[in-house]
Design a protein around this nucleic acid. Structure first.
Lengths: 344, 344
DNA sequence: TTGGGGCGAACTGGGCACGCG
DNA sequence: ACGCGTGCCCAGTTCGCCCCA
């Protein structure tokens, strides 16, 4: 402990503290400074984080509240946030949104006074109002990819642009019957992607052909969506799937149907990840900077904690959504009214 | 704070503290107890975790050091550990093994005195000797899936049995030329699986046909392994892949070759996850209880911290490895010397 | 008088061993 | 003996003060 270092170096704890923390206002002889530092090093002095944060207001810890870690998409956000926090000298506490919302004792352990300097909350649904409120009431918070309309700042990627890019890719290939497989109702992320899809259709004069179905975020719900789709009168020639995990299920359901991809139907999704290249058909996707999203949330939160910078929403447009072309999209087949086909 | 509650309730902080902590040795009038609790509730009193852990020795926090979170396999372990810790009333700090090993300031922030009651270290490689040492020197630790030969207790699943089960599945289908695609050299997990594979071959009198190749844990390294394999003189009729992510790459490389799965070559892997059903070919795998692994590590650590239970290695055999049959394995084709084929 | 160099003590929020009426 | 309060401790941080050249 500090006392030992101070005694060993022949100074008071006060001086030892200020020397070791490189307090610029302290004035000590160079010799004394050296001695204190040498002794501390020699004794392997490690400051006691708890004692330190009891006195000061800072704990050096940031809470990461995540949901659905099974999805590699969410893990990317987590990794980005974790890594940025660590680089900034903060440790990160991990919690699971559903558990926190259900189990009040977990929530209060997590939000116990003095535990955290701030919280990053990543939620795909819009259902965590109470959680957001409980958190933001006790500590500075930043929301990732969902805006609760309150005073909590939010960080987002350009979901609409990503969905528009995906849709335009299909339009350019000649598709005119493009359906959108959305996420669960109430998901703002999904809603934003849906409006990007609709906007792209509108810009190309196809607003009338918009067709939206809802699924969950899971692969199984993608399978189920395909079953439903096949019972419908006509299959669209292309599908924009709001989520890469859902799209995995879509692809294997189409394979099992069987419906040829991309010959009979093209599929494109939002978010890129390592597994897309290895699915039933290598899946074309729009890449969004998810690690950057997590990192930006961390940066915003840390700036807020340190009182730097204005606390306002961040909208990540750089790098822009990028189309990762693989094998799941192609020209529509036997729609002879499509001029692009005639040219081919 | 406690003082305010005490004042408001007309008692001393000591009494307030002991009432709120349900100290069984304290003697208070029922009326007083009620009053204190009512006031605390009304004032929304939340104990200050930092002050509390400064006095006591406990912090209520457990560190989770993970590596390669991109792999859903590792995320399963994380989820199991996180969830168990949370249920036991501990919060969890997340850190990344590589970063901790490289960046000394991150390590000391993480291991700062008073921050953690213990650490769960999950590492697939055997290269973190220094990390293990630094951690275990400053706080109780538990290793997941790797034994460093030191005094640090370890929790493992039955990798050998899983690999043996996978190999036997292939042997029973009639395969005699079964290769093993191992993980990186130095990985104890991979080594244990390799010996399970060899044991199974030996039991069936095929020890001579053992053939082992090394890859990384990534999907790309699975792709690369297939390239190498195809340049070899003869392709085996079946492949046991030590890791499901690697196997993803193997399957898509085989598709692109093309080499028909399972007609020309059967593939089976260790570890089950949601994406296996959606790969180039739905992948047969051996399921190991990974969430249980994480949870068991947490339980062992918490027992250690609380001074309960003997601190010794845990070997998880329940539930036993289970074969998840999908479409990537079948009988070997044109090996006419195999009697099973003749019967077919 | 001034200022370089350093020290003492209060304070952070609670826990707990005593002790008092 | 019941019911409860006083005061020190945890390990640092920091403000104000002091001493001496």
């Amino acid at each position: 402990m500090l006392r030992d270092v101070a005694r060993e170096a022949g100074v008071s704890p006060a001086i030892a503290s200020r020397v070791l923390n490189v307090d610029p206002t302290v004035r000590v002889r160079e010799e004394t400074r050296q001695r204190v530092q040498a002794v501390a090093k020699e004794m392997g002095y490690v400051p006691h984080s708890v004692a330190r944060s009891l006195r000061g207001a800072r704990t050096g810890a940031i809470g990461l509240v995540m949901h659905e870690l099974e999805s590699p998409i969410n893990v990317d956000v987590l990794a980005g946030a974790q890594s940025r926090c660590a680089q900034a000298g903060y440790v990160t506490l991990l919690a699971e949104a559903e558990q926190l919302a259900e189990d009040h004792s977990q929530l209060s352990a997590f939000l116990a006074r003095g535990r955290l300097d701030g919280v990053i909350l990543h939620s795909g649904y819009g259902h965590e109002d109470r959680l957001v409120e409980a958190i933001s009431r006790s500590v500075p918070a930043v929301l990732v990819n969902s805006d609760d309309g309150r005073a909590v700042p939010t960080v987002r990627v350009d979901d609409a642009a990503a969905a528009a890019l995906a849709t335009e890719h299909l339009l350019e290939l000649g598709h005119r019957e493009i359906a959108f497989l959305a996420g669960p109702k109430g998901s703002q992320t999904s809603d934003r992607r849906e409006s990007g899809y609709r906007d792209a259709l509108t810009r190309h004069g196809c607003a009338g052909s918009a067709r939206v179905m809802h699924a969950g975020w899971s692969a199984d719900s993608g399978v189920a969506a395909v079953q439903k789709l096949r019972h419908a009168a006509t299959l669209p020639t292309a599908l924009v799937v709001a989520n890469a995990v859902t799209a995995s299920g879509v692809l294997s359901a189409l394979r099992d149907a069987p419906v040829a991809v991309p010959d009979e139907i093209s599929v494109v999704t939002i978010h890129d990840s390592w597994f897309l290249a290895h699915l039933a058909v290598a899946l074309t996707a729009v890449r969004l900077p998810l690690q950057d999203l997590g990192a930006a949330a961390a940066t915003l939160l840390i700036d807020t904690i340190d009182g730097r910078g204005p606390v306002q929403d961040v909208f990540i447009t750089e790098p822009a959504p990028e189309l990762m072309l693989r094998n799941s999209t192609g020209r529509p087949r036997d729609r002879t009214r499509d001029p692009l086909i005639d040219q081919a």
